[in-house]
Structure formats: structure tokens, C-alpha cells
């Protein structure tokens, strides 16, 4: 059987750097949505416990080593970096999402300022601490926004929107850079 060549959504896109802040494409090899069936919350937590995880509360990301479980909406989380553990399919609807999403990462001193332009949420540390996740529109695109560090964020959009999402954030970085140069 021929080996297909896997390409990411922004294949060949070089990282963009402005004001010491880098926008780059992230790689997610494994991504599975987990949607517990009604009344199975405890059973789902018991199975996830084997990985050192539990089902996240709204707006929360749970991690165990490189494996993460991030909240992405009512009754749904994405498992990143691992296959679904055995037995989980009995208690939750599982769907492979790896082909459907693009991941962008931004890290650096103006990451917050750049993201606060297109995302209508307060991203200051007090309101949006490290580890917080939000479903929030990136202009008119449905997106998942996750703070992975003091100055680092991960943005997920539908794969078909990857270039538009990149453009919106890159433009916000350009504006901040131009303003810094002018002042």
C-alpha cells in the first residue's frame, strides 16, 4: 500500500517574528474529541485516570506529561497527544479530529496585545491565566484559544480557515510593530 504524505494545513509557512514574538504553525499528531454520554461522567473519569487525566471543567485544560485534555465546548473535550485509552468508547463518543483542525502558536512579549485585537476577550493574566481555554471567535471564525504559558498561546481553527487565521494574527502583529517603530 502506498504511503501517503501527510501535510499540515499551513505546510511550508515560515514562522513570523515581530517585536520578539513568534507566530508559528503547531503540529498535532493525535487529536480525538471525547463527548461523555449522559450520566457517564464518573466512568469517563475512571478510565482517564489511567492516563493521569480527568475530564476538564468548562474553560480548563488538564495535562499529564505530553498528553493533554482540553475543554472545547459543552460536554466535549479534545484529547491531544495520545490515542483514546481502552474502554473509553463505552462511556463517551470518540471522533478523530486530527485532520480537521489547524494549530497556530504564538509566543513572546506582544502575544497578548496581538491576540486581544482579533479575539474579543480579556487576555490579561488575571482574567485569562495559564492553562485556561476558551471557545472564542477569531473575527468570525470559530476557534479554541488556550494559554500555554505566561506569554504563549495556542490557537485552533478549522483546517480550512488556517490561512485566514494566520493572516488575521499576522496583521495584528504588523500593526503593533508599525506603531512601535513610529513612537
Amino acid at each position: 500500500m502506498p504511503e501517503l504524505i501527510a501535510k499540515s494545513a499551513l505546510h511550508g509557512q515560515a514562522p513570523k517574528v515581530a517585536l520578539g514574538t513568534t507566530l508559528s504553525e503547531g503540529v498535532v499528531e493525535k487529536m480525538v474529541s471525547v463527548a461523555p454520554y449522559p450520566g457517564r461522567g464518573a466512568a469517563v473519569d475512571a478510565v482517564l485516570g489511567a492516563l493521569g487525566l480527568r475530564f476538564p471543567a468548562a474553560g480548563e485544560a488538564v495535562a499529564a506529561g505530553d498528553v493533554r485534555l482540553i475543554w472545547v465546548g459543552r460536554g466535549m473535550a479534545f484529547l491531544l497527544g495520545a490515542d483514546a485509552p481502552a474502554g473509553l468508547a463505552e462511556h463517551a463518543a470518540l471522533t478523530d479530529q486530527a485532520d480537521g483542525w489547524a494549530v497556530l502558536r504564538i509566543a513572546g512579549p506582544v502575544a497578548v496585545d496581538a491576540l486581544m485585537r482579533p479575539f474579543p476577550v480579556d487576555l490579561r493574566a488575571a482574567a485569562f491565566p495559564v492553562g485556561k481555554v476558551a471557545r472564542v471567535p477569531l473575527n468570525h471564525m470559530q476557534a479554541v484559544l488556550c494559554r500555554t504559558g505566561e506569554d504563549a498561546f495556542e490557537i485552533m481553527v478549522f483546517r480550512s480557515m488556517a490561512r485566514t487565521a494566520w493572516h488575521e494574527i499576522a496583521e495584528a502583529m504588523d500593526v503593533l510593530e508599525a506603531r512601535a517603530r513610529a513612537s
Binding site: 468548562a58 465546548g73 471557545r135 472564542v136
Partner: peptide, 8 residues
Amino acid sequence: YHDLGCSS
């Protein structure tokens, strides 16, 4: 319906 958010 919260379509640009959590789908509630």
C-alpha cells in the same frame, strides 16, 4: 445558541 462559543 452559542454558536461562536461553547455550543450551548
